[in-house]
Amino acid sequence: MVDPGTLGLIFSVTALVGGLILAVIVAVTKRGVRETEPYLCGESEADFSDSISPSATEVQWGLEKTLSSWVSFVRTKIHTGVIDDWWSLMIAWAAILLIVSVVRGWVWP
């Protein structure tokens, strides 16, 4: 019985080394390479495909839209960027800590 970390190590090394071997086999046994210009599903295509591809700031769109209410809560209620709002949360937490410490530290058992 190995420990889980070693198991992960064995599996991942197997995957990486095996993947390398497999990729080399596939790359070697194919018939050849034909290099083409960029094309769009068979249509020839100029340089516009890059401009209509989602950029890095858009790939999360599906998830962000699904979580929109939660995301906007985090962005507009918690991370407001206004230091006064932050203080109210921080001080509230400090007050809770103090109350807890006084309540629980008061009585000598």
Partner: peptide, 20 residues
């Protein structure tokens, strides 16, 4: 001892806030 426990408790709470 009672006051020491209270003092230690408050000190711990305050320092926890600071380290957080």
């Amino acid at each position: 001892p009672g006051l020491i426990s209270l003092g230690a408790s408050i000190a711990l709470a305050l320092s926890l806030w600071v380290f957080m």
